[in-house]
Amino acid sequence: MSDELVIARGVRKGYGAGERRVEVLRGLDLAVERGEMLAVVGPSGVGKSTLLHLIGLLDRPDAGELLVFGSDTSRLSVEERARWRNRRIGFVFQFHALLPEFTLEENVAMPLLIAGEPRRTALAAAAELIASVGLDHRRGHFPDELSGGEQQRGAVARALVASPELLLADEPTGNLDAANAEILFGAFEELHLSRGLTSVIVTHNEALASRCGRTLRLSGADVEVACSRT
């Protein structure tokens, strides 16, 4: 099995049409190794989130080749993409961390419920993950009863409940104060190591990015990719 979980070759992606078209990614080449923790940084609008969406099978490249888990993503059916997002990829987003009508425990269990796991099994797995992010006492609370930091930690627990191989986080600390950002990132680091994850984290926080194994810097220039190992 290849050690590279994600391989991008000449990936291009743009939005709009005609004169209003904006090219966001222009021939991106990238490889993410299994077990790696990659930070993606750069100014707004250079395609950090776009890259994450492409890797996370939420979007398709306009051109180029993108392999995830060794498979060409252009050949995956809609159902396969949904199944992989459910089982093999965990997501943490900046907004909408949790579904408001469901308790923290139910939110965390949701990927397993979607996968068809029995409710009891899913809730038991959720409880375990919730405890691992330090929110055991908040299991039965609804999202609006949780702080922003707690909601994001809940989102991390949900992202990992189905034991994915790849964790994708889109500015997970973007809405948090420094203290909560530190707690959340600490949880990321610990779970990344303990679960043998491959993580790609988009962030504006250079200090947190520097704690990742490698940083991918995107810019608006033609040659966009600058990788540095820290």
């Binding site: 809609v78 949904a82 997002r85 459910n86 909408h96 979607i114 949900r158």
Partner: peptide
């Protein structure tokens, strides 16, 4: 969000 975590269209 549900679609992102695997609920098909």
């Amino acid at each position: 969000l549900l679609t992102a975590i695997g609920l098909p269209a």
